[in-house]
Design a protein around this nucleic acid. Structure first.
Lengths: 342, 342
DNA sequence: ACCGATATTGACAGCGCTACCAGCACCTTG
DNA sequence: CAAGGTGCTGGTAGCGCTGTCAATATCGGT
């Protein structure tokens, strides 16, 4: 009846154990809790594994142990420079560790996010990194009931699911406006694209700052659900000028829009900053080398990814960070595009 | 002695089979080869699975079947816009399919690539997407001996490992130079960063075109191993001007450098294109909205990723593409920055 | 020398699924 | 009506590893 599914020269843990003269379970322990082995056996297993070129079978390990060494990462976009930096941080932190990454793209949809979450959790990930704090109620419930470290990234807020690392988009935006006000600007326009939750909070920060200064005017705000681009920055800026021709500054929710606005100014022969001040958000690399250099709000994206991944690892290794919520802050980079008019 | 490791309410294939009134193996077949079931059982298993909310255990599946449904993707950079577009194509194509993606970052090192390759292949991926055609001899040997579809992306060349999709960087570069020559430029500089194999081939194309026109001069070439950035574009352009003050055009191996060169021209009050023509490479979104608009070589990055993933899937489903090497071509986008001087 | 505590090692079964073969019913063909 | 498909279903074992407990070795203290 049953025929062995013979696997010829394959190197399994059994082979390593045999060569090392120990039982398979001891060899197994070498890879998981080496400190539990006597020094002699540890060395024997190590050299046997190296000699045979043993590579553990992760599927078997996952099946037997009921868990994986995969960290799931959920981000809304693959093309956005911001997330590219975050991802690089995550990959750098996890590179060389035992953990690997499963990346999925929610496309800014929390329903898609929920679907992907279920998919992930069914495979029992070691940890989870999710973007933002606006999950569906179901997503939240799922994550709260699951027993693995979870880090919410990009922003901070009350009641983290588990851990959190980011900064306040509201405060960052308000600080940018405060800077423009300090430069003497009064009619400060707002350009927003995509309008995901974090951009929305930047709008809130803008509005709060403008209201505090008694300068808010709905005609100053131009937003769209369309994804951001440099070209869109020009278009939105043109729309803004049509609604409020008397603006003396514009705050853009990201640097692409800011660059687009700058180009639109060029096209219209409007002097930056003398006629119009421009401030962007994120401080991408090009902001400091454009002409004029563009002011922006620097955010620590690479660090965010790296530290989020590190928080996951530390928790898994039993060294849970003392503080579950980390505020990475921001800094307003004041450059030529918003220099005080002389 | 042996105690059952009881798993209480967990839904396994057995539970689904029981509810559907079939054997586990029949239920299993429903998920792999539904067409092999009778219509009645198919419906019964389907509704049972849905009722119980069954989610297959991928680790068990992988262990039993000796293969996974993971497509490994090896790219050199996570922050480069070019790869972000490619990745988006890959994710889009695989989204909704049964396959998932394992992404790894080689950081432009073929040794790192080889290491990651071994890691991947030990887990028996369903397919593989790797960047470029310059692998180590060992990497190549490993991939040739492995039995899964492999697509090399970004460029095309002789002797594909399996399949290939991309375009000729040499030809694309030569076409860009031909365009500049046609615009009347004679002293055409070359700006290169990172100098990975594909950039090197763009340099080769430049050199061939310049030699054909008897215009090549080594002083026109400025390259560096440093990773690209807009700021670097300005720096390299300044270096170029120092070496060859009489240039009338500059070809940049990517758009970041081109934008940086444009800004440097602004800083030096050099008129573009009247004094200096600029052409970039990749045709990122911002190229068409800068002032002046920037000429570039459009490459089909999203399509490359999408089609590469599709080629993998098609092969796995037994519909191997007739043509293993796909040339996606390119097009020279002629814009203001290289318009014929009047 | 004896006792209990601690470090090390091993035996066994089982994680949840699928490969393999066998069996049966129903056809088709000559 | 026999022979040989073809389509569908099921039984059995096993993929390679680890959880659980048991067994043995080692050691300090009295």
């Amino acid at each position: 009846m049953a025929r062995k599914r013979i696997t010829p020269g394959k190197i399994r843990l059994t082979e390593v154990a045999k060569l090392a003269g120990v039982s398979p379970i001891t060899a197994s322990r070498f890879f998981r809790t080496p400190e539990a082995l006597s020094v002699g056996k540890r060395a024997r297993v190590e050299s046997a594994a190296k000699e045979l070129g043993y590579v553990p079978n992760l599927a078997a390990r996952a099946l037997a142990s009921q868990r994986t060494e995969v960290v799931g990462v959920l981000i809304p976009s693959l093309t956005n420079n911001v997330f590219a930096d975050v991802l690089r941080g995550i990959y750098d932190a996890l590179d060389g560790s035992r953990y690997s990454i499963q990346l999925a793209n929610t496309r800014y949809s929390i329903l898609q996010e929920e679907r992907l979450l279920r998919l992930f959790l069914a495979q029992k990930p070691a940890g989870l990194i999710v973007t933002g704090i606006n999950q569906t109620a179901d997503s939240r419930a799922i994550m709260e009931s699951v027993d693995c470290p979870i880090v919410q990234i990009m922003e901070i807020g009350p009641s983290p699911i588990d851990m959190m690392i980011g900064f306040s988009h509201f405060d960052a935006s308000r600080a940018a406006i405060a800077h423009l006000l300090a430069q003497g600007c009064r009619r400060i326009g707002f350009l927003g694209a995509r309008m995901d939750p974090r951009v929305q909070r930047r709008l809130d920060g803008y509005q709060a700052a403008m209201n505090d200064a008694a300068l808010f005017d709905p005609r100053l705000v131009v937003t769209t659900a369309v994804p951001t681009s440099v070209t869109l920055g020009g278009t939105l800026f043109a729309d803004l000028l049509a609604k409020a021709p008397d603006i003396d500054a514009v705050f853009c929710v990201n640097d692409d829009l800011a660059l687009g606005a700058l180009f639109e100014c060029k096209r219209r022969h409007m002097a930056v900053p003398d006629q119009i001040a421009i401030v962007g958000f994120n401080d991408l690399e090009f902001m400091s080398s454009s002409v004029p250099t563009l002011s922006s709000v620097r955010t620590n994206r690479y660090e965010m990814g790296r530290d989020a991944a590190t928080m996951v690892i530390e928790t898994l290794e039993g060294r849970r960070p003392a503080e579950p919520v980390v505020d990475l802050g921001f800094s307003v980079m004041e450059r030529q595009s918003s220099a005080r008019r002389s």
